[in-house]
Design a protein around this nucleic acid. Sequence first.
DNA 1: CGTTGCATGTAAGGTGTTACATGATTAC
DNA 2: GTAATCATGTAACACCTTACATGCAACG
Lengths: 216, 216
Amino acid sequence: MGVDVFDTNMPKRYSPVVTEAANSDDVPNLPPTSWAVLGMLSHADELSGYDLKKWADWSLQFFYWSPSYSQIYAELKRLEKHGLATSRAVIQQDGVRGKRMYTITESGRKAAARWVNDAPVEAPVLKHSVMLRVWLGNLAEPERLREMLEAHIAYVEKMAKRAEADAKGAESNPDWAYPSAVLRWCTRHYESERDLAQELLADIDTLPKRRRRKHG
Amino acid sequence: MGVDVFDTNMPKRYSPVVTEAANSDDVPNLPPTSWAVLGMLSHADELSGYDLKKWADWSLQFFYWSPSYSQIYAELKRLEKHGLATSRAVIQQDGVRGKRMYTITESGRKAAARWVNDAPVEAPVLKHSVMLRVWLGNLAEPERLREMLEAHIAYVEKMAKRAEADAKGAESNPDWAYPSAVLRWCTRHYESERDLAQELLADIDTLPKRRRRKHG
DNA sequence: CGTTGCATGTAAGGTGTTACATGATTAC
DNA sequence: GTAATCATGTAACACCTTACATGCAACG
């Protein structure tokens, strides 16, 4: 393994060296998911855990991932414990169900800003099970591989359309300028995934078929 | 939230309905990471845990992610427990260090093939911290956003070049036809990520700057 | 009157990481 | 000699999911 051009170990962070400000006690050391939830709170007045989950499915989902309900509730408690968010109980009355609404605090807004600006950026994580299967293509039935890639193409097309529709809905509001820029990125990302999957499909069709059980 | 065209809940699996064969007792229910490790074993004669980690850094890394040493050792034990791999101890002698070499079993090869063909395919997982920060761009310093995106572009360019070099190295061997097709996909994927990041950079430059602390 | 949606949470367990420990060999 | 690499593993813990429990409201 005498390669000298590239590092074997790619960084998990883009800037591993923590600048003095980054992990001082005014910005608690939380996982990105916490900041994602706090970030959603920063885009709204008041949200319940349920609201947050629904919204995560329509926004975070495209470029991060949507945490489960239970994790969202846990994160909210943690954020409140750190003073980054506050909550008020909305008790049930007149046929309106009880719930707990969360709001970002001023301290939370500052901490989020410092996290965005100063915390080391984690390298993007990709876990592409479809590619994992193609990578093991020598074990697979060619038809199954094709089916998988076609299901994947359908999936990314759906995501591209959803992102596009969301981007359209968001771009009218100047407060959502950054979220809509990201949604435009997502649209292009999923469209590009579609094209890449189609090229891969064409690519593996040129491969000599070493195993073929049926071709009827 | 009266959208009727798309599902709010995107599938975590492409085919949630398990076909009779998929989870019968002959294919143990293991996480994708286990199959990834078994898959690496299926591409080689005999590998140590250390070898597997090194190889994961150069192959899986591009489209899946590279598990830590400790997890690889744990996965190997699990695979052996299920009879999908066997190991032999290479004791140290004549200045050669001791180690344990793992081999896929015939049963392991069959199980891996059934997993690839029949198990429901997990939707790809993307955790893009860079996009998360851009999404919170209203909290950020524009210059920091720019720096992050530029670091990201440098990262994906590095990945693209590594994938391309690997693809070149692999394509001569006909046994690696599928791995090299995937590496070509990875090359295009990272090149596309670079282009997308550049477009996003241009996109956010057109945004009205609501906050600006310094511009010297 | 049953299903769906709203709403919140707990418990258990799986997945995966970091830090640590150990010790030999190789390269500078 | 001391730093890096080879090689394996344990322990502690963080992260996250699934399954489960609960109960009301609205819709048909």
